[in-house]
Design a protein around this nucleic acid. Sequence first.
DNA 1: TTATACTATCGCAATATTACGATGTATTTC
DNA 2: GAAATACATCGTAATATTGCGATAGTATAA
Lengths: 109, 109
Amino acid sequence: MGATKTNLFTKQQNEIAVMAKALAHPARIAILQYLVKKNACVCGDLVEELGLAQATTSQHLKELKTAGIIQGSIEGASVCYCINPIVWKQYKELFNTFFKDVDLQASCC
Amino acid sequence: MGATKTNLFTKQQNEIAVMAKALAHPARIAILQYLVKKNACVCGDLVEELGLAQATTSQHLKELKTAGIIQGSIEGASVCYCINPIVWKQYKELFNTFFKDVDLQASCC
DNA sequence: TTATACTATCGCAATATTACGATGTATTTC
DNA sequence: GAAATACATCGTAATATTGCGATAGTATAA
């Protein structure tokens, strides 16, 4: 055992969980915030920005790329990353839906 | 190595990551959706609802409780759980802020 | 009191994540 | 071509997560 039993849950539940997992590390949050702040292609300076080893940074970038929320393109010797606005919007909407107002003014216990 | 280097990141970045981690499992999403749907104290029927073993379910409930997003109270022989509306709202707002519209209509790479 | 029901916790095994040095690959510069 | 730069990937170690059976604790029922 040890592996998540995805088959027990709905497609949407698994989807939200996968998205949340992509955001479940401060380094990946930092990367996303940096790309959002710059709102442009960012080439190169991500390793210094984070303070993690180059290999570790690359691994986090890969995870975000796999999740679809960022995209990268080779620009000469370096690689440029930016937010994928379409997927970003999907994330935003899915979390919005999830946290939708549901008359939660009173806790009952 | 293997442990997350939280000291490299801001308080807010770590906070978002911790919140995302609490949501990063379909069982925990399912629990939250169920509690939201019922919008009331739910006693007992969570184990059957999920399809996971009782011990596993209890563990997920504990994680959600530690994260603060649900609360439980002993009700006779069983325990009743419900959403903590204050923390729920905090989650909602933090994710909202994070996904705030940032002029992302164009991807550049 | 004894039995029953509900939940939490312990202990363990399987798997996943995090981190980094070393190495490989491609591009630029000299 | 050779050296330097920028990333990706591999291999590995440390740690965390997931899942469940077994067990313990507590409250109700008989």
